[in-house]
Design a protein around this nucleic acid. Structure first.
Lengths: 204, 204
DNA sequence: CGTATGCTCAAACGATCGTTTGATTCTGCC
DNA sequence: GGCAGAATCAAACGATCGTTTGAGCATACG
């Protein structure tokens, strides 16, 4: 028996941190298993390969993220009083709040990195597993923005996603100041992003 | 004598393509020199190391990009008739048009990848070499958006940059259709991005 | 108790990486 | 023509990578 958490979970947590720090190729299984305090062979034993481990790192967080997103969307979808900002909040806030659930802030960087890696395998993985989430959001955006045709809507949602990804990666000019807590910073980011996106989405 | 171009230039071009395809770590010097039709040792002879080669790949394109950006900005900066969209065009179009100058489309993916790599070395490199470009654009944005305080303006420019980076990376939902030329697609992207960004920047 | 099963471990495997070496060829100048 | 320096080449170096192996340990069940 292990110290408090299972070997699998220890590997996943250490992998997430190391992938965020050094990238998927940059983080070796030896660094990873050493940080997790497990044997080198444990990764291949429990996950089959390094690539499968990467997939599981994604799945663990993204399942939680999209569940959270859909729950927030369900609160406002289809209701007459719903404003565009409400749907955007359901789309944006869970993504930024991912940093709250146990060291998840590192995962945002993993995700942003993965987006840029531009791997078709990952792209297919995301599309297969979470495409239905985008469908639901798109439908609700379409309801609130009836003056936009479908192609135009896709373009704009894509740009919103780009701004969100950029904000999540933390690479931009905007860095958290020392006198601002991480929670405050995230709240500021969400507020700015929602207003910015609302204006960009709804302009004629 | 080489076939028409120098060894250095051949390496840079092949490196750009391979870095875009497989990432900085993923592309090996053996693949790279093989694709360029030069000897393996040529990289270390001409550039000193793989890391120095990466720097030069960036420098070659970014020098051209920022020169182009500043030239476009100079045409409109400070003039009374200048609209926000004009400054955004000077910021966005050269970045998207990077794909026109000799196989440069691959470089956009290199750049997007580098942004996500989140390497402090690169960050410092970009800041040192091209920080003055952002300063000039920020000043002009500030002139056209006097109702925004400095912090608010920084936030919004950052979000625009995020959307631009995302669009450059070509990872989003929006993919170029087969019946649309690359130039047309880039023009559509620029037009959407400029309108989206203008709305997001100037909202009250 | 005996045995089957799940897990951990140290060690090794083959492959590939970036870099270096030393010889060889090419180039331009006196 | 001959020599100096730049450039190219095949070959090898040491390091590190992901993965596999086979023995050892723990736990659970008949």
């Amino acid at each position: 028996m292990n110290s408090s958490t299972s070997t699998k979970e220890r590997i996943l947590t250490a992998a997430e941190a190391l992938f965020a720090q050094r990238g998927f190729d940059g983080a070796s299984l030896r660094q990873l298993t050493s940080a997790a305090g497990v044997n080198l062979a444990a990764v291949n034993y429990h996950f089959g390969s390094k690539e499968k481990l990467v997939e599981q790192v994604f799945k663990r967080r993204l399942d939680a993220l999209n569940q959270h997103r859909l729950a927030e969307l369900a609160k406002v979808a289809g209701k007459p009083a719903t404003r565009l900002e409400d749907v955007l909040a359901a789309y944006i806030r869970p993504a930024l709040e991912l940093s709250h659930e146990g060291n998840g802030s590192l995962f945002m960087r993993v995700l942003a990195r993965a987006f840029a890696e531009h791997d078709d395998t990952l792209r297919q993985f995301l599309s297969e597993n979470y495409g239905h989430v985008m469908k639901q959001f798109t439908a609700e955006f379409a309801r609130l923005l009836p003056h936009l045709d479908r192609a135009e809507l896709y373009w704009r949602i894509d740009l919103v996603t780009g701004a969100l990804t950029h904000a999540m990666s933390g690479f931009g000019m905007i860095q958290r100041k020392d006198n601002v807590s991480e929670q405050q910073h995230r709240e500021q980011t969400a507020a700015h992003l929602i207003r910015f996106a609302a204006a960009g989405l709804s302009h004629p």
